[in-house]
Simulated assay, not measured.
Amino acid sequence: MILIAMGVSGCGKSLIGEMLAERLNCPFTDGDTFHSAANKEKMHNGIPLTDDDRWPWLKTIRAAIEDKQRAGETAVFTCSSLKRSYRDILRAGDRDVTFVYLHGTPELLRERLGERKGHFFDPSLLKSQLDTLEPPSEDEAIEADIAMTPDQIVEKVLKEVKER
């Protein structure tokens, strides 16, 4: 089983991903680590990424997913996965991949980004991400509102994973 915590910046992908991996006793990989230096520089400077910037990044994450699967491992990844076409690359028709869509109000997201320190993402890019976001359908992802506590989110996700 592969879980991918997804959503715009500030939704808590890393925190929830780490907590899920701990509960599942499996590896956690932050998709941001696969970004090229050029992508990180663009985001740091408030320049939105294009699809052409994202394709190699998404394909690298998919390769990492396949490595975990070949090893027979359950794993948790994070990736914003803003568009269905991005999720299609990550999923590649694989029923073993489940997205966990973390969403919240723009106000809550802005608040969280304002509190974050030392991240390469320029908070001014939130609007661009929200404009790009194609929310997944119910059959495509487990949804969780970030107004819940992290523990509540993890419990909800784990319950729904068992039901699938």
Rank of each mutant, 00 (worst) to 15 (best):
P106V: 03
P135L: 00
V154R: 13
G93P: 08
R84V: 09
M1E: 14
R91F: 06
A75G: 06
K83M: 13
I146M: 08
G104Y: 04
V161G: 07
K40T: 09
Y86N: 03
A144H: 13
T50I: 08
R110D: 02
E18A: 11
K42N: 09
P123Y: 01
E107P: 07
T60W: 04
W55C: 12
R62Q: 11
R116F: 13
I142S: 10
A147I: 04
L24K: 09
A37G: 07
G7K: 07
W57F: 05
D53S: 05
P48S: 03
Q69P: 07
A147S: 15
L113T: 01
D32Q: 08
S81P: 07
T98L: 02
F121K: 00
V100Q: 07
E73K: 02
K59H: 15
F99D: 04
G93F: 01
R84T: 06
P27F: 05
G118M: 06
D32N: 11
R91M: 09
M148K: 12
G7E: 05
L90Y: 08
S14V: 09
D88G: 02
P48M: 09
W57L: 11
M1D: 13
A37P: 04
F77N: 10
F34G: 10
E107T: 11
H103A: 12
A63N: 08
L133H: 01
G72E: 08
E163M: 13
D131F: 08
R62S: 10
K68Q: 15
Y86G: 07
T29F: 11
F28T: 06
E143W: 15
A141I: 02
R112P: 05
T74Q: 11
D51Y: 10
T74W: 01
K83S: 09
Q152H: 11
E143L: 11
F99P: 02
V100K: 11
P123A: 11
V76T: 11
I2P: 07
I146A: 05
Y101I: 02
L102M: 05
A64Y: 03
K13P: 02
L20I: 09
Q69N: 07
L3Y: 12
L158S: 14
V154G: 14
T74R: 04
K13C: 01
L125K: 00
I65M: 05
L82P: 03
G114I: 13
E155T: 15
E163V: 04
S128L: 03
P56M: 03
Y101R: 02
V161Q: 12
S14Q: 12
F121V: 12
A144K: 13
T50G: 13
K117W: 07
V97R: 09
L3A: 13
E41A: 15
A64F: 00
T149V: 02
Q152E: 15
S36Y: 00
L133D: 01
L126P: 10
F77C: 06
L90A: 09
L3D: 14
A144W: 12
E115G: 15
T33M: 12
G114K: 02
E143N: 08
V161H: 08
R110P: 04
A75H: 10
P106D: 00
L20G: 10
V8M: 06
P136E: 02
E73T: 03
R110L: 07
D122P: 05
S85Y: 04
R91D: 12
S137H: 11
A37E: 15
R110S: 09
E107D: 15
A63Q: 14
T149G: 08
K68C: 15
H119T: 06
K68F: 15
K59C: 12
Q69R: 07
K156I: 00
P27M: 07
S85N: 12
D67L: 08
A75I: 03
Q129P: 03
